[in-house]
Amino acid sequence: MNRRTLLGAVGTLGAAGLAGCLDDDSESLFQNPFSGRGLATPVPVELTNEGDNHYNVHLEAYDPEAQRETYDGAYTVVPNERVSAPHLDGIDQQLRVTRFGGDHGDDLVEQASITRDTQYVRIRIFDDDIEVEAPEGEGTAPDDDLPEAEEADDANDSQSAE
Results as ranks from 00 to 15, higher is better:
M1Q: 10
M1W: 09
N2P: 02
R4K: 08
R4C: 00
T5H: 11
T5N: 12
L6F: 15
L7C: 11
V10K: 01
V10H: 04
G11V: 05
T12D: 06
G14W: 04
A16D: 01
A16P: 00
G17S: 11
L18C: 08
A19I: 09
A19F: 12
A19H: 06
D23N: 11
D23A: 11
D24C: 02
D24Y: 09
S26F: 04
S28F: 00
S28T: 11
F30E: 10
Q31M: 07
N32R: 10
N32G: 01
F34E: 08
G36Y: 08
G36N: 09
L39A: 14
L39I: 12
T41L: 10
P42F: 02
V45G: 03
E46P: 00
E46R: 05
T48S: 13
T48P: 00
N49F: 05
N49D: 12
E50Q: 13
E50G: 08
D52G: 08
D52Q: 12
D52H: 06
N53P: 01
N53E: 15
H54C: 01
H54I: 00
Y55G: 05
N56A: 10
N56Q: 14
H58D: 13
E60R: 13
E60H: 13
E60Q: 13
Y62W: 14
Y62N: 12
D63K: 06
D63R: 07
E65I: 09
A66P: 04
R68H: 05
R68P: 03
T70V: 14
Y71N: 08
D72G: 15
A74N: 13
Y75Q: 12
V77P: 15
V77E: 15
R82D: 09
A85N: 07
P86N: 07
H87R: 14
L88Y: 05
D89G: 13
D89W: 07
I91G: 07
D92Q: 14
Q93F: 02
Q94P: 00
R96I: 05
D103A: 15
D106Y: 04
D106S: 13
D107Y: 02
E110N: 08
Q111A: 04
A112D: 14
A112T: 11
S113I: 03
S113V: 06
S113E: 09
S113F: 01
I114P: 01
R116V: 07
R116D: 15
D117M: 05
D117P: 00
Y120P: 06
V121D: 05
I123S: 01
F126P: 03
D127N: 15
D127K: 06
D128E: 10
D129Q: 09
E131D: 11
E131R: 10
V132S: 01
V132W: 04
E133S: 07
E133F: 07
A134S: 15
E136Y: 02
E136I: 03
E136D: 15
G137R: 06
E138C: 04
E138W: 09
G139D: 03
G139A: 02
T140K: 02
P142T: 03
D144S: 14
D145W: 03
P147A: 07
E148A: 14
A149P: 00
A149E: 15
E150I: 15
E151F: 10
D153G: 00
A155S: 06
A155V: 06
N156V: 08
D157L: 09
S158I: 06
S158L: 07
Q159I: 08
A161H: 05
E162H: 11
